[in-house]
Structure formats: structure tokens, C-alpha cells
Amino acid sequence: MKSAWKRNWVGFFFLGPWLIGLIGFTTIPMLTSLYFSFTKYDMFTPPNWAGLANYIEIFHDPKFYSSVKVTAIYVLLSVPLQLIFALLVAVLLNRGIRAVRLYRAAYYVPSLFGGSVAVALLWRQVFDSEGLLNSVLGVFGISGHNWISTPSTSIYTLIILAIWQFGAPMVIFLAGLKQIPVDLYEAARIDGANKFQQFFKITLPMLTPIIFFNLIMEIIHAFQAFTPAYIVSGGTGGPLDSTLFYTLYLYQKGFTEFHMGYASALAWLLLVTIAIVTGLVFASSKKWVFYQE
């Protein structure tokens, strides 16, 4: 048995670079922004202590509530839909069919774009009033609609955009699928389990650590979604605040209206919210995530 001292020493040795980064590059800016959240700070003149004023103001701010609503819809829909889609495609493309490599690459292409300006244009190509979607609907005799600029539908086009860029979780699922020992499937086949039984009895349980990872990360990302709304609405969050994502609002407050103190308070509220949600997922993970330990 190693002594506790030695164990700690080894642990901190491996953790060392990260710890230096945490103290040097992460903690200082984070704590500074926490301090800003209790001040009136316009970026150019020194911050003035304001106590809880920003936090109180937030709860009287109608735009705060609309941004919360938009973000909540986005998180609730895009996270599960994107993950289910990514998992299905990963399983589909994890088989020995012809040209599978080409397919995988093709399915990953949308994610290569990231948040580039090209995405905004492409998105218009599909959803605007003369876009691809309306041409397809036109074939079936359904008359189109301004999908991106009608307040009631604009958020859903962004959710579809998020699902379309499902490559990252798909790749992680594929990598996870490869970690599953092949002998498990052979044993199951000998026991006479069919494909569906194999999926639910072996694939899914063995994949739970990866599903768990993807779920946590997608939740964190979706809460902080910024780029899609920023590039497609030109940073306005319009029409009628229907794509005013929480971080977009926070960005507007901080960078275009110079209320950095207020923006910092918004950011810390978001951190607390995400921490609670991911905390709940972590708590639930003991029930459904299986590690080989």
C-alpha cells in the first residue's frame, strides 16, 4: 500500500500543468468577472461597486426573460434531438458496409464549417422565402413561408442548424463504439440475441459513459449557444427577440452597450444554472452510467 503522501504527489504531478493553467489563465479572469458582476463597469472607466444592483435589475428586465425562454427551447430541443440523431447515424455508419468511410466523411462535412460566415449564407439558401425548403414544398403544392424571419419559426431553423452540425457527438460515439469489446457481441450471438437485443443489451449500456459525456457537453454548449444566432441575425437576435439567445443578449449588453458589469452578472447566473443542471445529470448518472471498474 502506497502512502497517502506519495499518492497525492503522483496525482498532483499529473495534474500539474492543468493546475498552473487553472490558476494562471482561468481563475483570475473568472474571479475578475465575478467582481465585475457586483459593479457598474462600462469597460473604459474603472468599475464602481454596486452590490447586488445588477442581479436585482436582471429580474426586472423583460429581455432577460425572453432570452431565457429562447435558450430554454433551444436546450430542450436541440440537445436530445442532436444526440439521438448522432447516435443513430454513428451506429448506422459503424458497420461493414461499402463506402462507409465516404459516408462518414460526408456526414461530418457540416461540422467542418463551424461558425463561419458561410454558414449564415448557406442557412439562408435553405430557409429563406426563395430557399431550398420552399422549393421542395412547392413541388408538393405547399406554399412557402419566411421561415427565418417569422418570429414563431425562426428559433426552429436554428435548432435544425444545430442538428445538422451533429458531427462532433457522432465522432465521439463512433470512437466509443470501437471501445466495446467484440467478444461481447460474439457471446450474445451464440446466445441467439438479434440485432435489436444486441443494441439494447450491449451497445447502449457499454456506451453510457460516452452518452453521459456527450449529454453533459451538449448541455453546456447549448446553454452557451452564441455563434448560430450571432451570424444569422447579424447579432441582433431578431426578429422580435425570437433568436435572442442568452449569451447573445449578454454579448449585446457587454460589447455593444458597454454594460460589462450587467453582462458579467448575466454570465454568472448562467454558470449557476448550468452547474445545477449538469449537477442533476451527474447525480442521476449513478443510476444509468456503467463503468468497467
Binding site: 439562408r124 422565402s129 419566411n146 427565418i148 424571419s149 417569422t150 447579424g234 441582433t236 431578431g238 426578429p239
Partner: peptide, 11 residues
């Protein structure tokens, strides 16, 4: 109409 205006608002 409003939807068209917004469609072209940031182009």
C-alpha cells in the same frame, strides 16, 4: 411585410 423586411434586415 414584416417577415420580408426582417429577412433582408441583416444582409
Amino acid at each position: 411585410d414584416a417577415a420580408t423586411v426582417n429577412e433582408y434586415a441583416n444582409v
